[in-house]
Computed example of a mutant assay.
Amino acid sequence: MSPTLDRLLKWTCGAVSALALFGIMWLMLFDVIGRKYFNQSIPGALEITEILMVVVIFGALPLVSWRGEHIVFDSLDGVVPRALKGLQHRVVHLLCAGTFAFLGLQLLKRAERFAEYGEVTAHLGLALAPVAWLMAALLGATALVHLLFVVQLPPGALEHVAHTPELPE
């Protein structure tokens, strides 16, 4: 596939996820030190951790899909004829694209409601709408990755086909 798109996803989604995970690490370190030695935790640490976990998970989705590093159940691969493997992969990616797009649209609607009602976190009062918008955008990016794979299968998508035994006719 495209090395440019690979770099773009790596330096956007990958970097954002890595920085959020790095932030969680330091936040937890200082929160534990504060509790142990100063009898004082960081105010809102749980809320910040939850938001950063959302960034880690949803930020990694497009990159994981792009690189094919997600969990794959191949229990039916033994019964699908080799001639249909390409079609099978395309149908799966189309279903994934539709699912991620649908979830992104639902989250976009939720984000609009959050913005309309002024939803904020309980302790720090951080606005929830931007977080939901980010989640929706990353779900949309994941849907686009899968949609691209409907048109052009990723490299190695059919490499295990040679190892799949042909069913007797």
Rank of each mutant, 00 (worst) to 15 (best):
residue 2 S to G: 01
residue 3 P to G: 09
residue 5 L to Q: 10
residue 6 D to R: 13
residue 7 R to C: 08
residue 9 L to K: 07
residue 11 W to F: 14
residue 11 W to V: 09
residue 11 W to T: 07
residue 12 T to K: 05
residue 14 G to E: 05
residue 18 A to G: 10
residue 18 A to V: 11
residue 19 L to Q: 11
residue 20 A to Q: 07
residue 20 A to R: 05
residue 21 L to M: 13
residue 21 L to W: 01
residue 22 F to S: 11
residue 23 G to I: 02
residue 25 M to Y: 13
residue 26 W to G: 01
residue 27 L to K: 03
residue 27 L to D: 11
residue 27 L to E: 10
residue 27 L to G: 09
residue 29 L to P: 02
residue 30 F to I: 03
residue 30 F to M: 10
residue 32 V to A: 10
residue 32 V to D: 08
residue 34 G to L: 09
residue 38 F to W: 13
residue 39 N to I: 09
residue 40 Q to H: 14
residue 40 Q to V: 06
residue 41 S to G: 13
residue 41 S to V: 03
residue 42 I to M: 00
residue 44 G to R: 03
residue 44 G to F: 06
residue 48 I to P: 00
residue 49 T to R: 00
residue 50 E to A: 12
residue 52 L to P: 06
residue 57 I to K: 04
residue 59 G to C: 08
residue 60 A to N: 05
residue 60 A to Q: 04
residue 61 L to G: 04
residue 62 P to C: 09
residue 63 L to E: 00
residue 64 V to T: 12
residue 66 W to H: 15
residue 66 W to S: 11
residue 67 R to T: 12
residue 67 R to Q: 15
residue 71 I to T: 11
residue 72 V to F: 07
residue 75 S to I: 15
residue 76 L to K: 08
residue 76 L to V: 15
residue 76 L to H: 13
residue 78 G to H: 02
residue 82 R to H: 15
residue 82 R to Q: 13
residue 83 A to P: 06
residue 83 A to C: 05
residue 90 R to H: 02
residue 91 V to Y: 06
residue 93 H to G: 00
residue 94 L to K: 02
residue 94 L to H: 00
residue 94 L to E: 07
residue 96 C to R: 04
residue 96 C to L: 12
residue 96 C to K: 05
residue 98 G to D: 05
residue 100 F to K: 06
residue 100 F to D: 03
residue 100 F to Q: 02
residue 100 F to V: 04
residue 101 A to L: 02
residue 101 A to H: 05
residue 101 A to R: 08
residue 102 F to A: 00
residue 102 F to E: 05
residue 104 G to A: 14
residue 104 G to F: 07
residue 104 G to K: 09
residue 105 L to M: 15
residue 106 Q to Y: 14
residue 106 Q to G: 15
residue 108 L to Q: 09
residue 109 K to E: 14
residue 109 K to M: 13
residue 111 A to P: 01
residue 112 E to W: 11
residue 114 F to P: 08
residue 114 F to C: 12
residue 114 F to M: 14
residue 117 Y to T: 11
residue 117 Y to I: 12
residue 119 E to F: 11
residue 120 V to R: 10
residue 120 V to L: 11
residue 122 A to V: 03
residue 122 A to R: 09
residue 124 L to Q: 06
residue 124 L to N: 03
residue 125 G to Y: 06
residue 125 G to R: 06
residue 126 L to D: 02
residue 127 A to D: 10
residue 127 A to K: 13
residue 127 A to H: 13
residue 128 L to W: 00
residue 128 L to C: 09
residue 131 V to Q: 10
residue 135 M to Q: 08
residue 139 L to G: 09
residue 140 G to V: 03
residue 141 A to W: 02
residue 142 T to G: 04
residue 142 T to N: 00
residue 143 A to I: 06
residue 146 H to K: 04
residue 148 L to I: 05
residue 149 F to L: 07
residue 149 F to D: 01
residue 151 V to C: 07
residue 151 V to Q: 07
residue 152 Q to N: 13
residue 154 P to G: 01
residue 154 P to D: 04
residue 155 P to K: 12
residue 157 A to W: 01
residue 157 A to N: 01
residue 158 L to F: 04
residue 160 H to N: 15
residue 160 H to D: 14
residue 161 V to H: 01
residue 162 A to M: 10
residue 165 P to E: 05
residue 166 E to I: 12
residue 166 E to T: 13
residue 166 E to H: 12
residue 168 P to G: 15
residue 169 E to L: 11
